[in-house]
């Protein structure tokens, strides 16, 4: 039987001998193109990527560099033209929709730029929604820990439009953490927030990695946001163009400048 057709629960463990148990996410030869003929755009071009566990990893790059497409592929939201993705030890490439949905619900958390909360549900209902959708029980102690950690205890009974953008994003982070996923994918999580709220959200994401051992991949174009990460992957023209370890805003900017210099 082709390994791509197996269920998540009975999923073939990674046959790739290079698989490292310390990785939260791995990609090999990942490629995605859009359009045809002269209009063909290679959004992601044979990318190999290792995302370690318990680390906040930032993916940075200029607009149109393909970083959002990369995140779509890593999350199993979009299918690559070629290449493979592993979430933890599970290979997700080619899985049927139902199994992909199940895997996303249990092992991947999402934090979106636009928060994407259910506007007619309370903050608490939003947080536990992934558990309900996946038939998992609510761990009240874990929920209380998350609420304390993120400081949203007073917002639980409120609906999203009744609380600030920063608070909404904290609720979204709690929703992403509630299933204890293998990895959280955050797409421009501070894109709609002011500086103060952005700093708090980034601090929370870093805290989740350091204190809870959570793995987070964050797409951002903000060097300050990237400086909260443990490592920065620089992305350009659909390829990994460099890494910055122990990043500071200046180091990230220098890396971006170097990319621009190469481009010139």
């Amino acid at each position: 039987m082709h390994p791509e057709r197996r269920s998540v629960t009975g999923m073939v463990k990674n046959a790739d001998t290079t698989q490292d148990a310390t990785l939260a996410l791995k990609a090999r030869g990942l490629t995605k193109t859009y359009g045809e003929g002269d209009a063909t755009v290679i959004a992601v071009d044979h990318v190999d990527l290792d995302i370690p566990r318990g680390v906040l990893t930032a993916v940075m790059g200029p607009s149109g560099s393909g970083k959002s497409t990369l995140v779509h592929l890593l999350a199993g939201l979009d299918a690559p033209d070629s290449g493979d993705v592993w979430v933890g030890e599970d290979r997700i490439t080619g899985l049927p929709d139902a199994e992909l949905a199940r895997l996303r619900g249990r092992h991947i958390g999402f934090v979106f730029q636009g928060f994407n909360l259910m506007q007619t549900m309370t903050a608490r209902d939003n947080i536990v929604l992934p558990l309900r959708l996946n038939g998992l029980p609510v761990d009240e102690a874990w929920l209380a820990d998350l609420v304390d950690l993120l400081g949203i205890g007073s917002e639980l009974a409120r609906k999203p439009h009744e609380i600030s953008g920063g608070q909404q994003q904290r609720v979204a982070i709690a929703r992403a953490l509630i299933t204890r996923p293998r990895v959280i994918l955050a797409d421009e999580p501070t894109g709609n927030l002011d500086t103060h709220a952005s700093a708090q959200i980034l601090a929370h994401l870093r805290q989740a990695c350091r204190e809870l051992g959570q793995s987070v991949v964050m797409v951002t174009h903000d060097p300050t946001a990237a400086s909260y990460a443990g490592q920065v992957i620089l992305f350009a023209d659909g390829k990994v163009a460099g890494h910055v370890t122990d990043p500071t805003p200046d180091a990230v900017l220098a890396g971006l400048d170097a990319l621009a210099g190469v481009a010139r």
Partner: peptide, 16 residues
Amino acid sequence: GREVATRRALGLSSVH
């Protein structure tokens, strides 16, 4: 539309 898509991202399969 965005809410439906979010549910899909959070684990709701297309069949469900």
